[in-house]
Design a protein around this nucleic acid. Structure first.
Lengths: 243, 243
DNA sequence: ATACGATTAGAACCATGGTTCAAAATTTGA
DNA sequence: TCAAATTTTGAACCATGGTTCTAATCGTAT
């Protein structure tokens, strides 16, 4: 029986991720996280050194997952446009999904210098992966030639910003948003298309132009429940820092 | 002689905006803002009720400017694609510019409920303006039919996210970034293009694929389109809250 | 049952940072 | 020049929130 049960730690991490997403990293208090994880504030420090470590693991976990998905997409043999599409889908899933979604990794400035370095490295690695996808598509003639670095950042910006406006109770599902964004974002670099549904597809379901429900009052989205999935890499990292 | 000199208030506001952009709204302390504005912490409260009010005016000012620019673009007779391009340019200018740029409006959650409402309203209005541009382009056949709300958010996300990665000492000027993003983001909705340089243009200068894009001569980043005009609305609001 | 380590709780500690305050310095108006 | 109003200051106040501490509780092996 290993000390500081792994599952407990994971439960706490998920709770923290939920609070971070709901209230924002800055506003998320240790007491709030403790309550969400069903333990006392003091007990939280038995499992994690502090808020920084909690935040670090949240970010690390999500980035690992995204990186993993990006690598998988790049390794596949489907058209590059579809690879990029897959990355976009996964990105939004791990960001917005009500159960597994996390947004802590979008606020890296809150982290102590020492830990931040690692996270920034991983984030850059992910960005490079997206960029590489664009370059590959351009080389194959699937994409137009362009400033891959800038386009990659534009894409990631569009994706990351969804965390600001997406609401679980909205009219569009995460999947629908993912498809819509993938269509638009890929189309922006797709090479001249003659409807040879290669990587680009017709704009949108002709029902478009939908007004998308009113303005969101920036309230707190409802909570979600923890689920059972785990990421192999993050788990390793978790154990590694075990004391 | 009006009490609480307007110019002084504006100077302080600009200083606050600078600190907000440099350190982030959450991390920006009143003492830091005071120092940046060359006055004592206590004196700050003679001009502004508190951090919230300071933040509110910063956000309000920037949103007013952007809204004004968006309305101007929409009212012009140039192709819709160019109108959208102009909005993108202005948006980035008011966000990233070393002197006038402000990013406080990107963190609306930090604001007290009462003030937040006004800001959210304005932000939504701006978003609607961008959306309307997309709808107009689609109706004119310049753009493809698409989910205008989603595309608008994608565009704004890509633009707003630049505040996270742009560095004044980087290789790309704000203007260069603006052009690159405008190209990509407009291309994503441009109707089938036969090189009839209608609103869409060829991808990029054939030097593409460069790791960090175009060269920049030296010195200040070139001034953006918007002239030195000031937003009447913000000024009025400033005075309105005068006590 | 007893003992010892793992776990938990909750109060208390303490640094941070927004804010207040009383008084001093400066400017203005007559 | 004098008095009132304006502006400025720096210390002090106080709420918030991360963290620490001590003691109680639980689980398990002997």
């Amino acid at each position: 029986m290993r000390r500081k049960s792994e599952t407990r730690r994971l439960d706490i991490l998920r709770a923290a991720a939920r609070v971070f997403r709901r209230s924002g990293v800055a506003a998320a208090g240790m007491r709030e996280i403790a309550e969400e994880a069903d333990l006392s504030p003091g007990n939280l420090y038995y499992y994690f050194a502090g808020k920084d470590e909690l935040l670090f693991f949240c970010q690390d976990r999500t980035l690992d997952r995204m990186l993993e998905a990006a690598d998988a997409a790049r390794a596949s043999t489907i058209p590059v446009a579809d690879q990029l599409r897959a990355v976009i889908r996964t990105h939004l899933h791990y960001t917005l999904d009500e159960l597994e979604g996390a947004t802590a990794h979008l606020e890296i400035d809150m982290l102590a210098e020492a830990l931040r370095r690692t996270i920034i490295e991983k984030r850059d690695k992910y960005e490079h992966a997206v960029r590489a996808l664009i370059v590959k598509g351009a080389k194959r003639g699937e994409f137009v030639s362009c400033d891959a670095a800038l386009v990659a950042r534009a894409i990631l910006g569009a994706l990351n910003w969804t965390a600001r406006w997406y609401r679980p109770d909205g009219v569009q599902s995460v999947a629908a948003i993912a498809e819509g964004l993938a269509d638009y974002l890929v189309r922006g670099i797709a090479a001249a298309r003659k409807d040879a549904n290669k990587g680009a597809r017709p704009p949108c379901p002709p029902g478009g132009l939908s007004p998308q429900g009113g303005s969101r009052p920036s309230g707190r989205p409802p909570r979600g429940l923890p689920s059972g999935r785990k990421s192999a890499k993050s788990e390793k990292a978790l154990i590694a820092t075990q004391t």
